[in-house]
Amino acid sequence: MSIAAPSTQRNTFTGWLLAPGVFWMILFLVAPIMMIVYVSFWTQTTFAINSTLTLDSWKNFFSSEAYVGALWTTLRLWLIVLALTFIIGYPAALFVGLLVKSKTVSTILLVLCVIPFWTSFLIRVLAWRPMLGKEGAINIILQKLGLIDSPIEVLLFSELSVIIGMTQIYVVFMVGPIAFMLGRIDRNIIEAARDLGAGFGRIFWKIIFPLSLPGVVVGAIFVSVMVLGEFATSGALSGRKVNLLGNIIVTQVGSLKWAMASVVGVILTILLGIVVAGFLRIVDLKSEL
């Protein structure tokens, strides 16, 4: 009994410490999600919505080519942007985190990566218009150099411009975590591998890359969560030609179609859950960080 008492006391104490967080999460995360799931089964008429349960909105979503198409577009753009941020971000992280010997210089470089975030999201996205447009910077330069005769129109208001815009914005979320993991690698380990006769390629694939994998996973989770929920970049750079799940939510909410917006919201949440869980299966982050 005398042993049990303090342990119960500690449990109560832990409970009190947890209470605010748990309360907050229930009120602002669990409850709204439950609500969205609930609303997705409501009956929607043109001008009103009532709480009679029905599968109509779900059926509508899966029978509409536009909605299902948006789901596939979202998945396709997500995979492309994820791949690009990794391909562009990893070498940059390798340079910042491993090849730069001075800690100060590598910190400065990381801060430089973040500088674009000092401007607002919308300006960063819209800044691509004068770059990519028909009479934009890239077309003018290419024409002046004589590389092309007529402007490349596919640069702006296309899937390509959305991909370029998203990659530019999100690549830094890939660079940061990878550079952090690479920076933690003991240089002696790399020298030990060299001393044991391994060349650079072997050292990279057998030592450096596996040790940076947790950073890759964290970066991929960041990028995925943000890209899957995106609507602003595609809205601003695609000329409404590229519809993502996020854009559908925006238009449905705009026209007060709460039930359909909820259906898309639930699908998006499930998608995110699967993606994050999938990434977490690759690496045991708890033991790595």
Binding site: E191, A192, A193, I207, P210
Partner: peptide, 19 residues
């Protein structure tokens, strides 16, 4: 270069491959 010398090196902090 180091990897062609055939000289062994034991590091002070052992420098084992953690993974």
């Amino acid at each position: 270069p180091a990897h062609k010398r055939g000289i062994g090196f034991v590091f002070q902090n052992f420098a084992l491959f953690p993974h």
